[in-house]
Nucleic acid binder design. Sequence first.
RNA 1: CGGGAUGUAGUAUACCGGUAGUACGUCUGUUUUGGGAACAGAUAGACUGGGUUCGAUUCCCAGCAUCCCGACCA
Length: 423
Amino acid sequence: MTKGTRQSQLFTKTRKDAPADEVSKNAELLTRGGFIHKEMAGVYTYLPLGLRVLKKIENIIRDEVNSVGAQEVSMTALQNPELWKKTDRWNDEVVDNWFKTKLKNDTELGLAFSHEEPLVNMLTNFISSYKDLPLSVYQFQTKFRNELRAKSGILRGREFLMKDMYSFNTTQEDFDSFYEKMKIVYKNIFQKVGIGHITYLTFASGGIFSKYSHEFQTLTSAGEDTIYVDEATSIAVNQEVFNDEVLANLNLEKEKLVEHKAIEVGNIFELKTKFSKPFDLSYVDEKGEKHEVLMGCYGIGVGRLMGTVVEALADDKGIIWPESIAPFKVHLLMLGDDEEVKKRADEVFETLQKNNIEVLFDDRVGLSAGEKFADADLLGMPYRAVISARSIKEDGVEIKKRNEEKGKVINMEELLKLLAPNH
RNA sequence: CGGGAUGUAGUAUACCGGUAGUACGUCUGUUUUGGGAACAGAUAGACUGGGUUCGAUUCCCAGCAUCCCGACCA
């Protein structure tokens, strides 16, 4: 990613008014700031600023899942129905949110809503021995879901970027231990993205093979789910499985649980042999005996995660990005456009870039100070640095955190120290 | 998919069976410059199709789009 961008060169613009057809906070702020553009209901383009955020979240996830040895691929969005027929998931009665399309010769195709079938089918080419396992594979891929009702801006779209990952193990013990590792990986991801303090491992209905699935739910009023949080243990229970039996099972006391609205930012669950069986994904062990591979699945909606951060952390002036995923670390504002201010601001812009500090430079001329401040608040970079006649008089740069009321003037050396990467 | 609502400029709105006005925004220029500045000029609009009518943005029907509630979310 480029280190510095001049705002005068950025083709997107901020807007004072939210579009009439957006109600959710994330869509309103992201649209006003020029992070996203709505193509149609539930379908959004990511603009330069928004894409930087998305890529940063992607990289945080990538680093974390790489740490458990997962290997990245990029599978196709176009899907072969034959594979999905093997699991009966081409059936509209079973899966009702396919986007189905056709080749010119009328051959049916699907636009992927998930990737279990093609991945498992592909891996039968590569897995045959216990020596080939364990394995975990992931990708960042656009998913298409023909939702009956898209809503809440980028929290629930018809086309969205998802990190989906699948694990392959020989024994239940191996699977269990990997699954536990993934819980920690997920915890780390949400921590790094900046919502760890309001994100809870949540027990939810387990589907077919395990008693529970595990969701990662982030507290926000924009959430679609209701969860019951136990602060002491930092775990939660989804309303869908909230009953006495489950609570007893999890050793939770009903009186201590607090009800919250939350949004599901990730989920992990066990698949056992649901997909390995129909595709005959198997391996032979040391004795030459054949077994089906045990699978697990791990998802994170990347765009949804971005929207969740906006929902959870914004204030009435705009977005507040955590440093880890902010498009730029600092928003440098040039107030006034006399030669001295221009020269000084340019110097600071260059110096920050040379020191590997990501900077958005508001070098636009003719705007009032108020407009620039308002834009800086809306766009939500973690730091705001101001160059003006006033700061020059005090021989420094005025620096302020997005969430602070008042800034202070510091010299260049202190500024570089404050903004140094990995600090 | 069930229910509800709304479609006039980017936003908010006004009037009207005789082809639309205001404000904000946006753009250009000038003057400004520490919390969305002033002046001047400019820009831009009736969702689509059908019907009724001499004439429809206005009335009727259909479609489409968007939002909200619910269901769904493998």
